[in-house]
Design a protein around this nucleic acid. Structure first.
Length: 436
RNA sequence: GGAGGGGUUCCCGAGUGGCCAAAGGGAGCAGACUGUAAAUCUGCCACGAAAGUUUCGGUGGUUCGAAUCCACCUCCCUCCA
């Protein structure tokens, strides 16, 4: 990416956050002239955003910090259709009630990343359902559809594989998604003088559709900027783990699990991620990298990344909670923990459950731990037992202990007569609390 | 509406009457080695502690025996109209 004449764009470029832009030189000039309004869309495909949306969310914040006005668009309308961009298969449609419920959740979530201060560049959250719900089909086809050429639409890389791919196709509904998103841009240009849309690089086709439509309908030049897809050096998909997606909602991914996710970042990715996911300056990040390379010991970057991102998403308190659990599980002896510490760990989001004596009677360790979701099947627990990698309060259990459930979880063996910390393998922990 | 091709265990993908709980790969889990890393090596990988139980889009057949054969149904894809 060429050096531009705009400080913000220079920084973004240094961070590797710019994949593509429309009319680069003109965009720099456009942003230099005065505060502009930009938007980024988030479709409600679940009841929470996940870390895949973090880069664009932070991007809005970066623009706001530079004095521009961010609009976070929640796709109440587009979420009902489904974006086909680079998706291998047609998606299942979600019901309207479900989608509108998700819209509300995303609205709140998105709001925490941008500032609403009542000033000129105060953020706003908009919903594209507001301007599409009363759209009349005939008007839509005449006023909007006419501006789109099927010939160029099927040339878009984002849908090409769906069109060419053997065994899968694309419905008219999803094919039309691009037109709806383009209409959003034109509409936001009319309503808010919005002149820039940002998004992931998979959105390029949809974004340029919007810049074209805005020019044709409104006669205004507007811009697009995309961020690179977050990739990992080992080629696996970013944002997924054994346990699934890393969500921004702490009820879906605990602060502790969230922190742990970032802590596990590969050396090969961590400096790039610092640039993508934090507001640390590029110089500071380069300094961290230099120091890690020279230190010859375990790098610092992962814990800095984990701390910064956890703080951004879950606040200072969330970070403290995550660190508290991490310290207890990985650094300290459990014996040092007070009774209050144990109950605090529960509150902090350490996976835990309460058990009664009845739950234990006659049960097996395998099914007990599967029920607590420490393993996917009894076979896995059995495997771990055979390798002596199941620990209850730091005591290794073997396959011969499998049927001794009630004995193992007898109150005499628990910390403070009721706490049992179970470890399966190196990283999976679960706190069981015995009921009186 | 017509013709053809498909739906196999988390994914890809073998399997065309018994040797099939079903090859191979990927993912995943556990162990060793480590830095709660990477790479590598080892074991597991339908469910069940076990006895045993349930699978190959669905239903019903044929057969001593079916993922494999037959009928109907259903979903998907391609081409033609």
């Amino acid at each position: 990416m060429a050096i531009t004449s705009n400080d913000l764009l220079k920084d973004l470029s240094a961070r590797g956050l710019i994949a593509q832009t429309t009319a680069e030189a003109e965009l720099a000039e456009h942003l230099n002239q005065k505060a502009r309004t930009l938007y980024c869309g988030f479709d409600p495909t679940a009841d929470s955003l996940h870390i895949g949306s973090l880069v664009p969310l932070l991007m809005l914040k970066r623009f706001q910090d530079a004095g521009h006005k961010p609009l976070a668009l929640v796709g109440g309308a587009t979420g009902l259709i489904g974006d086909p961009s680079f998706k291998a298969v047609e998606r299942k449609l979600n019901g309207p009630e479900v989608v509108s419920e998700w819209v509300e959740k995303l609205r709140a979530q998105v709001s925490q990343f941008i500032t609403f201060n009542g000033e000129a560049n105060s953020a706003e959250v908009v919903n594209n359902y507001d301007w599409t719900k009363n759209l009349n089909v005939i008007d839509f086809l005449r006023d909007v559809g006419k501006h789109f050429s099927i010939n160029s639409m099927i040339q878009k890389e984002s849908v090409k594989q769906r069109i060419n791919r053997e065994g899968e196709g694309i419905s008219f509904t999803e094919f039309t998604y691009m037109i709806l998103q383009s209409y959003d841009f034109a509409e936001l240009n009319r309503l808010y003088s919005c002149t820039l849309q940002v998004g992931g690089s998979d959105q390029w086709g949809n974004i340029t559709g919007g810049t074209d439509l805005t020019r044709r309908q409104n006669g205004n030049q507007v811009f697009g900027l995309t961020m690179p897809l977050v990739t990992k050096a080992d080629g696996t998909k970013f944002g997924k783990t054994e346990t699934g997606t890393i969500w921004l909602d702490k009820n879906k991914t605990s602060q502790y699990a969230f922190y742990q996710f970032w802590l596990g970042t590969a050396d090969a990715d961590v400096y790039k991620f610092l640039k993508y996911f934090t507001f640390l300056s590029v110089e500071d990040i380069d300094a961290i990298e230099k120091q890690d390379k020279e230190s010859g010991v375990k790098p610092e970057a992962q814990s800095i990344l984990a701390a910064e991102v956890t703080k951004l998403v879950h606040g200072e308190e969330g970070l403290v909670a995550a660190k508290r659990i991490t310290a207890a599980l990985f650094n300290n002896e459990l014996v040092d923990l007070s009774e209050q510490d144990f109950s605090q760990l529960q509150l902090d989001g350490l996976p835990s459950s309460t058990v009664s004596k009845n739950d234990l009677a006659g049960g097996s360790l395998t099914s007990f731990l599967v029920d607590a979701r420490l393993a996917a099947s009894g076979k896995q627990v059995k495997d771990a037992l055979q390798r002596n990698s199941v620990f209850v309060n730091n005591v290794a259990k073997g396959i011969e202990d499998n049927m001794k459930l009630a004995e193992i979880f007898d109150s005499v063996n628990g910390y403070y007569s009721k706490y049992f910390l179970v470890k399966l393998g190196k990283k999976k922990h679960h706190l069981f609390v015995l009921e009186d």
